[in-house]
Computed example of a mutant assay.
Amino acid sequence: MTHVAVLVGSLRADSVNRQIAESLRELAPEGVVIDIVDGLGDLPFYNEDLDRDGVTEVVTQVRARVAQADRVLAVTPEYNATMPAVLNNAIDWLSRPYGAGALVGKPFGVIGVTPTPYGGKWAHEDARRSVKIAGAIVVEDVDVSQSSIDVDVLHDAEVRERLRRALLTLVEFDAEAVAA
């Protein structure tokens, strides 16, 4: 079994990106478990004092779920030409303790849609840069940046196939082969 922790960059209940994350369960190949990590909106803003003096239960739970995963996938829109604060904050918590955070050594990909002509590419670039600094192994070939203006992303067969292929690329990624 391959466990993929999914971080959704939108807090809105009816978010298209949350719906995409949920659709990954049906698109996933056999033997792949999609774990949508809830609670990102409940994480306090990262503060080293809080981290040192005792983290909240939600911080402990989010860190544990990502640490237990084999892969991490962010599904996110773009806010003001960057990743949403909730995703950035989650990455901050998951990057600590420095050098030993839950993201260290994890293959990581990012996909998502946004109602702009750019399809979220800047948010995806920022997320990849941030997790790479946090110690994740960025899988560059896992990238679906799609505008929700031009197509019904939840039902379009071509978009669904691109999502399926991106997930498969992340799942099949061999970090040891890249390191060799």
Rank of each mutant, 00 (worst) to 15 (best):
M1D: 12
M1S: 15
M1Q: 14
V4G: 03
V4F: 04
A5Y: 01
V6K: 00
S10V: 00
L11H: 09
R12H: 12
R12G: 13
R12L: 14
A13T: 01
D14A: 09
D14C: 12
S15A: 04
S15I: 02
V16Y: 08
V16L: 08
V16K: 04
N17H: 15
R18P: 11
S23A: 05
L24R: 06
E26K: 11
L27K: 09
E30N: 13
E30S: 07
V32D: 03
V32T: 12
D38L: 13
D38G: 15
G39T: 06
L43F: 01
L43Q: 01
P44S: 07
Y46S: 05
N47S: 06
D49N: 12
D49L: 12
D51C: 08
R52L: 09
V55R: 07
V55T: 09
V59K: 00
V62A: 00
R63K: 14
A64F: 07
V66D: 00
A67W: 08
A69M: 04
L73T: 02
A74Q: 05
A74C: 07
A74M: 06
T76S: 03
P77T: 11
E78F: 00
N80H: 00
T82Y: 05
L87W: 03
N88M: 09
N88I: 13
A90Q: 05
I91H: 05
D92I: 03
D92P: 06
S95A: 14
S95M: 03
R96G: 03
G99I: 07
G99A: 11
A100Y: 07
V104T: 13
G105H: 13
G105T: 12
P107I: 05
F108L: 08
V110I: 11
I111M: 05
P117E: 15
Y118E: 04
Y118I: 15
W122M: 06
W122G: 03
A123P: 02
A123F: 05
E125A: 14
D126N: 12
S130K: 11
V131Y: 01
G135F: 04
A136G: 13
I137T: 04
I137S: 00
V139G: 01
E140S: 13
D141I: 00
Q146N: 10
Q146P: 08
S148E: 09
S148K: 13
D150L: 09
D150V: 15
V151G: 06
V151M: 12
V151C: 06
D152Q: 09
L154N: 06
L154C: 13
D156H: 07
D156A: 00
A157F: 09
A157S: 12
V159E: 04
E161Y: 10
L163W: 04
R165W: 14
L167V: 03
L168Y: 10
T169A: 02
L170V: 01
V171Y: 02
V171G: 04
E176H: 05
A177N: 14
A177T: 12
V178H: 12
V178M: 15
A180L: 11
A180F: 06
